[in-house]
Each structure stands twice: as structure tokens, then as C-alpha cells.
Nucleic acid binder design. Structure first.
Lengths: 149, 149
DNA sequence: CTTCGATGGTTTCAAAATGAAACCAATCGG
DNA sequence: CCGATTGGTTTCATTTTGAAACCATCGAAG
């Protein structure tokens, strides 16, 4: 991956979780990415969908492009208009799905309606489950963080 | 789930991703949860580990307890000291793992060292991969969000 | 070619969140 | 009883966010 952005001084330099949070863990970035998952997005499209302030959206888009998560490449004419996910951006799919599934399980009252993620045939996506290399299911009690020296 | 917290007016009420971000999508909450995954956590332990300001940590802990993600239950004596994950909190494991794996893939230069998540035998956790009910691998191109009316 | 509306911003300023530091009460070890 | 540690709260400065106004460009309609 191209080392595009200049973040420097991470909250916790050795922890991939902390770096991910530093990059996309604010109020808006992941929602912009969520929207961009549905296809190329425009400034006003995002604005309407999210209800975000213009200046903040402008800043977040610039930052996401700098970080290599979005591109506004010359696709379309080069006039800096359409935003789409890069490889790194698309790769956030799994994390967005994980947050979605957690939200479905814990952020809605019983019977409260919510959007769903489905495959091309309309069937819901299976629940993500962390496993070991041997296929055994894992959780926070059966794993540990191996700190790096 | 007990409707403990009072969040009200969500950024995007029907979207589980947005609700999850509203609940834990700030600079610190997920890192607090990450730390709590390793076992019961104390105020000063978290402070030292994260380098977070006292008042902010105090606020986040209160909020996470209100939201039913952490408990500071009477376990230990009832004197409001130890914080541990509730069921909903432990269930964030998958999302934290997904962010960790994304961070490992995209937030480190080649060869730059980082902590790893391993199982009880020290073997790395397998990469999470969204699948359909039939086991087919899915990504943002082969899924769509079914909006709720 | 002119005008009009929409798009994609930037600037300015007020309000809210964050952080550093000082302060404080309760507990614990000796 | 003494001093250190823990678990905070309060105060105040700094930073971030957001609403609103402003502005430049483009394409379509007249």
C-alpha cells in the first residue's frame, strides 16, 4: 500500500486496532465509507445521506483520500468530483459488516426495524465469527494479544 | 437487552452501522473495550495504558456503563472500582478483530512490527471473511443494503 | 451568449468536545 | 497516624465540530 497520508504520532503505535481507530474511528469516516460501499459517491450525495456539515465532509474526504481509503482519481474526467473506494477502502467491508452485525444485535429494541445487508439473491450475510487456524471458534477469553517488543 | 442508556436521536436511526458508530465510534471507547478484553480493568490501569485524560476517561466509562457495554457491578465489593465487559461488550470482539486485521493490512509499513492476536496455543487468529448463508465469499460488490421502509 | 440552477467547495464564527492541571476524598500499607 | 495510591471532579485553555454565508464552475435552457 502506498504510504500516502501523514498521520504520525499514533495513539498506540504498535496496536493495529488503535491505528485503525486513528484512521477511521471518528464520527463520520466509517459512515462515508459505508455509503461509498454502494458505489461511487458525490459530495452532495454524501451530504444529503449523512446530514454532515459541508466543511467537515470536505475535510474528511480530503483526509480519506490522503490516507488512501478513497480516490477521486481522474475517473470521469479528472475534475475532482466522484469519490470511490480504493482497495484499502473496500477492505474495510469486513469491519463495517462486523459493526453492523453488532449494532443489529445490541443497538435495536426487539422488533425495531433496521436496514439489512444481503447478497445478490437477497439472502442475509452470515454472522462473522473469529476462528483459529484450526477452525475453533474464538472470543476474548480464548485469545490474547501478543505484545511486540 | 436492557435499554439502559439514553442516546436518542441517532445519526441514522435505521442503520446498525450508524448506531454502532454512535455508541462506540469515538476516539477512545473502542480502545477502552480493547483493553477490557484482556480482563477486568481499573481506572488508572486504563489511564496508563491509553494516555487518556482523566475527565475524558471518567466520562467514557460512565457512558459505556450506561450503554450496557461495561459493568462496574458489585463484583469485588460494590465500591465502584473494577470495570469489565458485559455480554454486549464482549460481543464487540468480532468488530475489534476486524478493525485489527484491517489495521494490520493497511496501517503498517512493510516489516513494521505490531502486536498480534493469538489463541491459547499462540497461533494467530484466522482472517475474518464475510460469507453468504451458502458459504460464498462476499464483498461490497456482491452485497447490497436492503433499506427498510 | 446569457441566465439559472446545481454542484463542490471555502471562510467565518459560535458552540461543543477534548485535554492538562489542580484539587479532593477515601482507602491501604506500614 | 502517615504517606502514597486510587478514583475521581472541577476549572480553564485549546481543538474540533457545525451552521451559515459566500463563491467559483459547469451544463442546460432560452
Amino acid at each position: 500500500m502506498g504510504d500516502a497520508g501523514a498521520e504520525r504520532d499514533w495513539t498506540d503505535p504498535a496496536c493495529p486496532v488503535a491505528r485503525a481507530v486513528d484512521l477511521v474511528g471518528d464520527r463520520w469516516s466509517l459512515l462515508i465509507v459505508r455509503d461509498a460501499m454502494e458505489g461511487p459517491a458525490s459530495f452532495t450525495g454524501l451530504r444529503r445521506s449523512l446530514g454532515i456539515a459541508r466543511n467537515i465532509l470536505s475535510d474528511r474526504l480530503r483526509r480519506l483520500v490522503d490516507q488512501g481509503i478513497l480516490s477521486t482519481g481522474p475517473s470521469g474526467g479528472g475534475k475532482r468530483h466522484v469519490y470511490e473506494l480504493t482497495g484499502a477502502g473496500k477492505d474495510l467491508f469486513t469491519a463495517v459488516v462486523a459493526l453492523r452485525q453488532w449494532g443489529e444485535r445490541h443497538a435495536f429494541a426487539d422488533g425495531e426495524p433496521h436496514s439489512r445487508l444481503v447478497d445478490a439473491e437477497g439472502r442475509p450475510v452470515a454472522e462473522l465469527r473469529p476462528q483459529g487456524q484450526d477452525g475453533a471458534l474464538l472470543d476474548s477469553d480464548t485469545t490474547r494479544v501478543e505484545r511486540v517488543e
